[in-house]
């Protein structure tokens, strides 16, 4: 019989990555009312930035992660300014198509330098695994869980106590209202994209050692993060985190106790089930009007 605890730990480890991806999706959705289908490519871009900084510029591992997060954030802000601001008032289908276009574009651009090979992103730690209370877990997974948890706390504090965080919350609730209290909503949009992209890039650097590095690596994570976000109600930051963990664990339990044949699609069973039974998600207040 397969060990339940081992499955739970592996599920939480994978789920923490899905949670980070979901966070980025939720932030953009809350502010701009659009599902960012290019978020997987932001993850990919972050991973390649970190990889380039580490292998070509020989930056220390930690600094290459910092470089990925900062440049990832810059990329997010540039995308908002260049590709999004002009069309921000268009129908949400148009906006969604813009993100799909961005996704294709970014994959295409990444293939120019990186399309001829699958690269390997070294993990943060040399050790293959540690055994905690009899359960084997890789240090990379521990790092991912720790990152997801601390990012969740940091985001909570950010939205609660910082001026920019409050402005973002205000803009998420009503854009006109935010303008009426003197908030530069353009800056808020750019900052939101930057923040979402920074989280995405961090997720990319954490995911790459597990998934290998290639221009299409983001797609799978986007789908899982999407499932997590739907589960969490798509409007809720804690919902995204919890949703991510649930998707990760359900996947493992499904594969472990039912069948590996449907393990990967179990995430989509979750989406369908949630939309069917509780369309607002576990944490949602409003109905999911648009996807």
């Amino acid at each position: 019989m397969v060990n339940l605890l081992t499955l739970l730990v592996a599920g939480l480890a994978n789920g923490s990555l899905y949670a980070l991806v979901a966070l980025g999706l939720v932030l953009i959705y809350k502010t701009q009312d659009v599902v960012n289908f290019a978020h997987g490519e932001i993850l990919m871009a972050g991973a390649f930035i970190g990889f380039s900084a580490y292998t070509f510029l020989h930056l220390p591992y930690g600094w290459s992660l910092v470089a990925a997060v900062l440049l990832g954030g810059l990329l997010g802000a540039v995308i908002e300014r260049v590709a999004f601001r002009r069309v921000a008032n268009q129908h949400h289908i148009t906006l969604a198509m813009v993100t799909v276009g961005l996704s294709v574009l970014m994959k295409g651009l990444a293939r120019i330098p990186f399309g001829r090979d699958i690269n390997t992103y070294p993990p943060a730690f040399k050790a293959d695994r540690v055994v905690l209370w009899g359960i084997p877990i890789s240090p990379q997974h521990l790092l991912t869980i720790a990152m997801a948890a601390s990012l969740a706390v940091a985001l909570y504090l950010f939205f609660r106590f910082t001026a920019l965080g409050k402005k973002m919350r205000a803009t998420q609730q009503t854009i006109v209202g935010a303008q009426l209290v003197g908030i530069n909503t353009g800056n808020v949009f750019a900052s939101t994209w930057a923040l979402a992209a920074m989280i995405g890039a961090a997720a990319g650097v954490l995911a790459a050692p597990l998934s290998l590095l290639y221009p299409d690596m983001g797609t799978n994570f986007l789908l899982k993060g999407f499932a997590a976000a739907v589960l969490g109600g798509f409007e809720s930051v804690p919902g995204a985190i919890v949703g991510g963990f649930i998707v990760g664990v359900v996947e493992m339990l499904f594969g472990g106790f039912v069948s590996t044949v449907f393990q990967q699609v179990s995430a989509f069973f979750i989406i369908i089930l949630v939309l069917f039974l509780k369309p607002d998600g576990l944490f949602g207040r409003r109905a999911l009007a648009r996807v």
Partner: peptide, 10 residues
């Protein structure tokens, strides 16, 4: 595109 083979291995 699987990034995890825990269940298969177990």
């Amino acid at each position: 595109n699987a990034t995890d083979a825990t269940t298969q291995v177990l």
